[in-house]
């Protein structure tokens, strides 16, 4: 549930404009999804502290993924949250205040590479097996486990692609889905950027 947000007052909006700041809407800004990348000390309790902060501060937390980075002492967290820019800025500052965080970054949608992994188990019959394999092929999903009644697919891609794959499979009777949540990184700069 998106946390409630205090509205900007009319007077604040006028002052912000006078200071040359962008005020997107005079009405409360609509919340948007943000992908936050955090580099974190890789030790017990550090992740707890981050996750705890979201509930303690009444921020919404859509997904968290965590894994170790190139440096075994450092783990990388990808957090998906939604909120207005002001609210997300506050999250970033609070995250930054934690001692365990080494860097905190709000990844702009056009500046990130992201992937999500999804495992999906489905029951099949002779009648729909070929169709399932066709869908899987379109999404470059692989079969990683199979029994006479069930097949388990692995699919990787941007969240939208994973959503689409799950959507295509749904009519066939999904038995189980496990998704990783997003893993993201800032896009490396190329010439011309």
């Amino acid at each position: 549930m998106p946390a409630t947000e205090r509205k900007l007052t009319q007077q604040q909006i006028l002052r912000m404009k006078a200071n040359g700041e962008t005020v997107l809407h005079d009405a409360p800004e609509t919340p948007r999804r943000h992908v936050i990348s955090v580099r974190l000390e890789n030790h017990v309790g550090a992740l707890n502290r981050v996750v705890n902060l979201f509930s303690a501060r009444n921020f919404n937390l859509e997904s968290v993924t965590v894994g170790v980075t190139e440096d075994p002492e450092v783990s990388c967290l990808t957090i998906v949250t939604s909120g207005t820019r002001r609210r997300v800025k506050q999250v970033l500052r609070l995250l930054d205040r934690l001692l365990d965080t080494l860097s905190v970054e709000d990844l702009a949608p056009d500046r990130l590479v992201e992937r999500e992994l999804c495992l999906l188990r489905i029951g099949y019959t002779k009648g729909n097996r070929a169709e399932l394999m066709d869908v899987a092929d379109i999404f470059r999903a692989r079969v990683i486990d199979v029994t006479p009644e069930t097949m388990t697919f692995e699919v990787t891609g941007p969240t939208a692609k994973v959503n689409a794959f799950v959507g295509m499979m749904r009519p066939h009777g999904i038995l189980e889905v496990a998704r990783s949540g997003r893993v993201a990184m800032r896009r490396a700069l190329v010439y011309g950027d």
Partner: peptide
Amino acid sequence: MNSTPTAPFKA
């Protein structure tokens, strides 16, 4: 949502 650290505590 994953909430366990992947690496063990390094004593």
